[in-house]
């Protein structure tokens, strides 16, 4: 498994691969540790530069899936807004809707039948 694998167009050796990862990783960590470390922590120097604007909260800057079809819901907001209002999150409201609609259907079936 750790031997040399000849492919015809090159070779593959797990040991050489591991050694290379360790050597390159060590060089990267060494250079990174030589970087600037005198910045003031927990100040503005710790925050990203967004053209001088304050950093928004994670919730405020999050792109939700609904942003993808924003134009669709914006064009049909006359239809969506009442629907959103109807979704109160209260199970009693939903049960009431079922009862009301069931009654309406039964009346319609009763009248036509």
């Amino acid at each position: 498994m750790l031997g040399l694998l000849e492919t015809g167009s090159g070779f593959w050796s797990a040991i050489i691969w591991i050694v290379l990862v360790l050597v390159i990783g060590s060089i990267v960590i060494y250079i990174r540790n030589k970087g600037e470390d005198s910045y003031k922590k927990n100040t503005e120097q710790d925050k990203p530069f967004i053209s001088g604007n304050p950093e928004e909260s994670k919730e405020g800057s999050h792109l939700s899936a609904s942003h993808i079809y924003w134009g669709f819901t914006e064009a049909l907001k006359g239809y969506y807004n009442p629907l959103v209002k109807m979704h109160t999150g209260n199970i009693n409201d939903y049960s009431s809707w079922i009862i009301v609609i069931t009654v309406i259907i039964l009346i319609m079936v009763g009248v036509s039948g």
């Binding site: 503005e44 120097q45 001088g52 604007n53």
Partner: peptide
């Protein structure tokens, strides 16, 4: 409009 942005940019510049 630029007031707090100028201050923020100044604070973000390292010493």
């Amino acid at each position: 409009r630029m007031l707090d942005r100028v201050k923020r940019v100044y604070e973000q510049t390292p010493d």
